[in-house]
């Protein structure tokens, strides 16, 4: 079925704040890969696994690494802000970890937020902010503590009405100026035919706050819908 990508004018509302922490963690001299995998078909029993990443692409399980089990259904997103030694995933709410020099993971202070439906995560290139998308159409902005990786929820932005569904992670331009989120809009309600859409936001560089890009609603692109 054909549908369209159209732009969304989104509205922000302020959510609660929290988090913080102290302490540090050594930089990781080796390179590692982390993988979330599940048992299907309904994405239950997701666990996080760690591998040593060697030049040439060889992957070796990290010695002694204990897989981190998820208490949530659904495959969790996973992100490591470029240049950092922090890992964020959604396995028990949004969870923050410090990556140790041997590849093992340690919970960051105030490590978890009870956002159970996060389907996407992306870090800002400044390493100052983490953005989480929920399946219910909400983008949450977290400030990252640069010393510990701990998260502080600062703002949430709704894509609009309740009949939006986000399926995957947003993306951010390399310079950090803009964030784009794909979503499906169901104008006649969930379960009815939907429209594939892209929402565009500018990013305020000091706070990470999101503002809908003016005029974006004029854009459209034919596309099949899920």
């Amino acid at each position: 079925m054909n549908a369209r990508i159209v732009w969304i004018i989104a509205f922000a509302f302020v959510a609660g704040c929290g988090g913080g922490g102290s302490g540090g963690s050594p930089h990781t001299p080796s390179r590692f890969m982390y993988v979330n995998a599940d048992q299907g078909p309904n994405e239950f029993y997701t666990e996080t696994y760690g591998f040593v990443l060697s030049s040439g692409g060889t992957l070796t399980p990290i010695a002694g690494f204990s897989p981190i089990p998820s208490s949530l259904p659904g495959g969790g997103p996973l992100v490591i802000p470029s240049g950092s030694n922090f890992l964020y995933t959604n396995i028990n709410g949004i969870s923050a970890f410090q990556i140790n020099s041997d590849g093992s993971l340690t919970n960051a202070p105030d490590a978890s937020f009870s956002m159970t439906d996060a389907v996407g995560l992306v870090a800002h290139p400044s390493l100052n902010f983490l953005y989480a998308s929920s399946s219910s159409g909400v983008l949450s902005v977290f400030a990252i503590n640069p010393g510990t990786g701990a998260l502080n929820l600062t703002l949430s932005v709704s894509l609009g009405a309740s009949n939006f569904e986000i399926l995957n992670s947003p993306v951010i331009t390399p310079t950090g100026g803009y964030l784009y989120q794909a979503a499906v809009y169901y104008p006649n309600g969930l379960g009815q035919p939907g429209l594939s859409q892209l929402a565009a936001f500018s990013i305020e560089p000091t706070t990470g706050a999101l503002s809908a890009v003016p005029g974006g609603e004029s854009q459209s692109q034919p596309m099949s819908c899920p």
Partner: peptide, 22 residues
């Protein structure tokens, strides 16, 4: 293809996400 590594738990059938350190 230059290599392939299975998830250690053989009951896992889907890779949901991959992330690399830099």
């Amino acid at each position: 293809p230059v290599g392939q590594t299975s998830v250690p738990d053989t009951t896992k059938v889907n890779v949901d996400a991959i992330a690399l350190t830099h």
